[in-house]
Design a protein around this nucleic acid. Structure first.
Lengths: 340, 340
DNA sequence: TTGAATTGTGCAATCGATTGTCTTATTATT
DNA sequence: AATAATAAGACAATCGATTGCACAATTCAA
């Protein structure tokens, strides 16, 4: 039917016999416009079906009301829930969200930065790629004073605000839980040690071990990219050794999954022979058999908090405060560690 | 360091002592500009670190190189993989993607439409909300000739191109598989019958039953919103009846999951007492115990195909061809139906 | 009554890239 | 050599909203 929707402020102006600038000001509730005029303008706008042209406004004000998000992959539950949190708050505040996936690759991440920059986003929320070791591309934002907030996988060398979960505590309670179950030889499959989250999980783990005076066996702490495949390698290494551990704290649920599958295949009993704890509470962890004890972290909360921080910087020009917010974690006890 | 990046085509023009229009045309490879000039312009652009201002360009050309996506929820694997497919292709072709979640609610979906429309997207890819029964809000796009492509959950009353998987065949092979395993009393938990995908799954199921001359018992076909909770209700209804089925084909994996959990709790053996087949091949289905036989559908492929279609309409102005593309499905046989 | 203060609007430039039309330079045609 | 045809580039308007400044109308004080 109506094919045209090119109602501009000038159409409103013409209809009311006033100027475009007055219409603009009226719509923006500028104090210099009388209430009477404002009402007239708004009524007419509604009547004509006026839709502001964001493009024009953006060009003039050079802000796009859009925030960019860079994440490793959207299909991981933690990240998709973070996005849900980000979107919900952002939309409520009138911001659009553009999402880019790095696929955990440095090069892709660099592309994302370029894309978002070219889109003139007003701010960026990011969780860095696993395989990135150089973060210079983020300077595209920081050099231009485009607000940047990291979450979960954060980078210390970049001075920005950050939102993380309490990985240290997560590692600590996971280890303490296993200790309380009577485990003595506790292994930890740790993630890449250039990422703070894995450093913290490991440190929390070590702290619990020391607190309870349990020997820390270097051989039982291995580093892994924490993929499904490498999890299998780790499982093999640990479970087929001469002196296997009686518990494994895996750096994430995916690795814990690999261990459970491997143990099942080899007839190794979980939790009797080896107890397992993961990290993240991925949706599948509940349905595994045995179901997986894991440390829960809320992607949604992390996303929401990061957005809150970012919008504050954008709207209040608070500058990069370099705040770091730590959100709580908690242990979800399930069968995989349920030794009597 | 450099805080300013306001290099415009006019800066390039000034540096080379030519006009802005020439620079613009040179950068766009316009035929009216000599190769020599083009090279000079491009070199200077690089040298000055020129970044085109998409806002200005968008305003002038009134196309934003952005496509909008409306999905029920990003955290469902099928949809997040669809998005991965959409994004990958879209970015490759120079388009940005804005994602909105309807949370399966009609009202939210309507909001998404408004948001995307206000963002002046060049086209939209959508999978409709489960609880939507009125699709008038989509006319915001169709009335304005904004290309629209549906995927998976499509709406027949709207005349657009569509991408679906072969739900009919999926239902058919699922049922035939159960029949081949010797099941006689086969139940089907079907989804909302205003959505074609669930109609088709049911019809495929019925066809297989008829083909193999198996009685279709009305009591064994129940409709459900296919949530985790309602799955439990269905499990109860079916498994606690006087004459329970020996197989259940669930409309999705979530419902199949509920059945498996319920059966486990009640000590009902799967697949011996009741075989179960799901639909979607959600990531968790592989790890369930017993692992779940299911019909695989590639979200990635669906997303890619939908994007292909949409971009074709946008770029070639092919109009709404009302093409419907059907992608293949295949059965993944696992333990939950592995009767000997 | 006059000048100052206040209030409400209009004018016109602006954001940066695009594009129809016009101008000049070059080449081709006869 | 003269004209037509073509090529290469310049000019200026344009997209639609915003905003500094100018200006008119109204109110107020003295």
């Amino acid at each position: 039917m109506k094919n045209e929707n090119n109602v501009t402020i000038h159409d409103i102006a013409k209809a009311l016999n006033i100027s475009g600038s007055t219409v603009s000001r009226a719509l923006n509730n500028n104090a210099r416009i009388s209430e009477k005029t404002k009402k007239a303008v708004k009524d007419m706008a509604k009547q004509l079906g006026y839709q502001p042209n964001a493009l024009a406004s953006n060009l003039r004000t050079s802000c796009t009301n859009t925030i960019g998000v860079i994440i490793p992959r959207i299909s991981r539950y933690f990240f998709s829930s973070a996005i849900t949190g980000i979107e919900e708050l952002a939309r409520e505040k009138g911001f659009n969200v553009i999402i880019c996936q790095s696929n955990d690759l440095e090069e892709r991440e660099s592309d994302c930065v370029q894309t978002l920059f070219a889109s003139r986003v007003d701010g960026v929320i990011s969780s860095v790629a696993l395989k990135a070791e150089n973060y210079d591309h983020y300077k595209t934002f920081t050099n231009r004073n485009i607000p940047l907030v990291f979450f979960d996988r954060v980078v210390d060398e970049l001075e920005t605000s950050k939102v993380v979960v309490d990985d240290f505590k997560g590692g600590f309670i996971a280890a303490e839980h296993l200790i309380s179950k009577g485990c003595k030889r506790i292994a930890h499959i740790s993630g890449p040690q250039h990422l703070n989250i894995y450093i913290n999980r490991l440190q929390g783990f070590l702290k619990a071990m020391r607190k309870h005076h349990i020997d820390i066996n270097e051989e039982l702490i291995i580093e892994s990219p924490l993929t499904r495949e490498d999890g299998l390698r780790c499982a093999k290494t640990l479970l087929e050794s001469d002196n296997p551990p009686d518990a494994i704290f895996a750096g994430n649920d995916t690795t814990a999954l690999s261990i459970i599958l491997y143990a099942k295949e080899k007839g190794i009993k979980i939790p009797e022979e080896v107890a397992v704890v993961g990290f993240s509470n991925e949706p599948f962890s509940e349905f595994l058999s045995p179901s997986l004890t894991t440390v829960e972290q809320s992607g949604f909360d992390v996303g929401t908090k990061a957005t809150e921080l970012l919008l504050d910087i954008i709207q209040n020009k608070t500058g990069n405060k370099q705040e770091t917010i730590v959100l709580p974690v908690n242990l979800i006890e399930r069968e995989s560690s349920d030794k009597k």
